[in-house]
Design a protein around this nucleic acid. Structure first.
Lengths: 197, 197
DNA sequence: CATTGACCGTTCGGCCTCAAATTGTACGAA
DNA sequence: TTCGTACAATTTGAGGCCGAACGGTCAATG
C-alpha cells in the first residue's frame, strides 16, 4: 500500500508527499521549504484548534471562534462590531451570527451606538465576564501545553516568523491578487447571495 | 478610542492585547510567549488560506479544503477515504461531503474496493489530473509569496517549530485531555446527531 | 453457521464561513 | 431639502465542519 512508509502523520508524510509531488511535476521546480512552511502552518493551526475545542472549550460548549470573539471583547472592552470582526479574524457576516448566538446564551450584549445609528457595540455581560476570568487561564495553560516542546525563545521566534507571513499578506496581498489577474475581472464565486431580479 | 494605538493589525495589536489581558487578570501569570505563538499560528493560517482562496483557487472555484483533498489524492494516487481524511486534516464526515461535491464537478471519482466492501477508493479523473497539473505550480508560487519575507532557512526553521507543535498534540493530546477531565465524562456537545429513540 | 465485535463510510444536527446583495444611517453638496 | 455618496450591520445562498449515531461488511470465535 502506498501509505506503508508513513506511520507518523507529521513530518514523515509531508516529506514523503513532497517527493511524490516533485515526481508528479517532473521537472517543474517546487519551492519546497515554502511549501513545507505553509503546510505546517495549517496543520498546526488545526491541531491547536482541535485540542483547545476538545479540552477547555468543550466544557463551556464554546467553539474556537466564539471564544475568540469573547476574548476580543473582554480585553478591548465595549467595541464596535467591525473592530471585533477584524481583530477576531472573521467576516462581519460571520460575526453577526456568532454574536447573536453568544447573546442568546447571555454572555454578550449588543447595544446601538448613542450618536451613530449605524454602529452596534458589543460588550460582555457579567456572566460573560465571569466566564472569561475563569476560562482564560485554562486556555492559556493549554496554549502552553501545545507549545510544550518549544522553549520560550523558540516560541518568540516562531511568532516572529509567523508575523512576517501575516504582514506580508496584509500589506502586499491585495496588490498581489490584483496583479495575478492582470486586467481580468475577479472570478465569480459559486456560493453567495444572488441579485434580487 | 481604544484602538488608536494599534494601526498595524499584526504585531502591535497582539502585544497591546497581551498587556490588556494581563491587566484583566491582575496578578495571575500569563505564558505570554506561548500565547503569542498560538495566536500567530492561527492568524497566519487564516491569512494564508484567505490569500490562496482569493487568488489561485478562486478561478477554479475551489475552497482550500477541496484543493487539499484533490492534492492528497493527486500525490498519493488512488486512496481509501479514511487515509485521505487523515492526510487532509478533516473528519470522515466532512470528506464525504467534499468528495461528493468534487465528484459532481467531474474532478474526483469514487469506487468500491474490489475485495473489501466497506472501503471506498478515491482517485482523480483525467480532468482532475489536468487541473492539478495546472493549478499546483500556481499554488506553490503563492506559498512562496506569502513566505516571501522569510529566507529558505527561516522557512525550514518555521516548519520545524510548527511540526513540534503538531507532534506534541498528536502524541500527547489525547492523554492530556483525559487527565484534564480527570474522571469526569467528557462534556456533551450541543450540536451533533441525536440517538434515534 | 450464528454471533460478536471491530471497522468503514454515510447521515444528521447545529454551527461556522464567506462574499455579495440589501437595508439603513450619516453627512456633505447642490 | 433633496440628492448622492459613503459606510455600517444584516441577510442570504452555497458550502465546510465536527462528532455521534447509524447501517453495512468483515473476520474470528463458539
Amino acid at each position: 500500500m502506498h501509505n506503508e512508509g508513513a506511520p507518523v502523520p507529521g513530518q514523515r508524510s509531508i516529506t514523503e508527499a513532497e517527493k511524490l509531488a516533485a515526481a508528479k511535476l517532473g521537472g517543474i521546480p517546487i519551492r519546497r521549504d515554502q511549501m513545507a512552511a505553509v503546510a505546517n502552518i495549517y496543520r498546526a493551526a488545526s491541531a491547536v484548534r482541535q485540542h483547545l475545542e476538545n479540552s477547555v472549550l468543550r466544557g463551556s460548549d464554546l467553539t474556537w471562534t466564539a471564544f475568540v470573539v469573547l476574548w476580543v471583547v473582554w480585553v478591548w472592552g465595549e467595541s464596535e462590531t467591525r473592530h471585533v470582526a477584524e481583530e477576531a479574524g472573521i467576516s462581519k457576516g460571520t460575526l453577526t451570527g456568532v454574536s447573536r448566538t453568544l447573546e442568546s446564551r447571555g454572555l454578550l450584549s449588543r447595544a446601538g451606538h448613542p450618536s451613530d445609528g449605524r454602529l452596534v457595540l458589543l460588550s460582555l455581560t457579567d456572566e460573560g465576564e465571569r466566564l472569561m476570568r475563569r476560562l482564560f487561564p485554562q486556555f492559556n495553560e493549554e496554549e502552553a501545553f501545545v507549545t510544550g516542546q518549544l522553549t520560550d525563545e523558540e516560541c518568540r521566534n516562531l511568532a516572529k516568523g509567523l508575523r512576517r507571513v501575516v504582514l506580508q499578506v496584509e500589506e502586499n496581498g491585495e496588490e498581489r491578487r490584483q496583479s495575478l489577474l492582470n486586467g481580468a475581472e475577479p472570478a465569480p464565486r459559486r456560493s453567495g447571495r444572488r441579485p434580487k431580479g
